[in-house]
Amino acid sequence: MTVGMFWGKIMILLSKKTIGAIGAILAVATVSPAYAAAGNGTASVKILRAITVTKSSDLYFGKILPSASASTVAVAESGARTCGSGLGCYDTATSGGFHVVGTTGEVVSVSLDSATATLSDGASHSMTVNLATSTTALTLTGGAGDFKVAGTLNVGASQADGTYTGQYSVSVNYQ
């Protein structure tokens, strides 16, 4: 147990194991006065509100066979894929999924840094992806919540074969 000063109040950091397992916030109810008093004579204890974010699934379009004309592949938040005319799509598609754990009843705001991401095959070929999430305010009912990210891939006419990689940024904002 580490005892440190924080905002003039005494903060007790729970063991690493406890924090890792459930987050400091969930331990509020289990901290007894005896525990709090273990390192110090005074009784002021501040348990910090914590938040964790975890990726639960990748936004994955599957494998795509391009056609002679430009088209799109859309993956909805449900994971359902709409394969544009002319294209061949296989492999199971998934939407991007994230799991947030925090204080019960707390509300956080979800934002995508950019609504567009660019994918590149490392050579001169690229594609763009339009991203969206229907979750803007996420209330952590029961201390946890999930949100999904949907995407639409813009496939060019006779898009070159290969593996395309790219990144997108999403943040969970505390108020």
Binding site: M127, S171, Y174
Partner: peptide, 26 residues
Amino acid sequence: PAPDAPKPGQPQGMSIALTPIYGIAI
């Protein structure tokens, strides 16, 4: 996700790996 190895007789096509960079802002 690792692109599947192309199966014999299956066209190669494109595979896409989109990595989320996710974070927390306070």
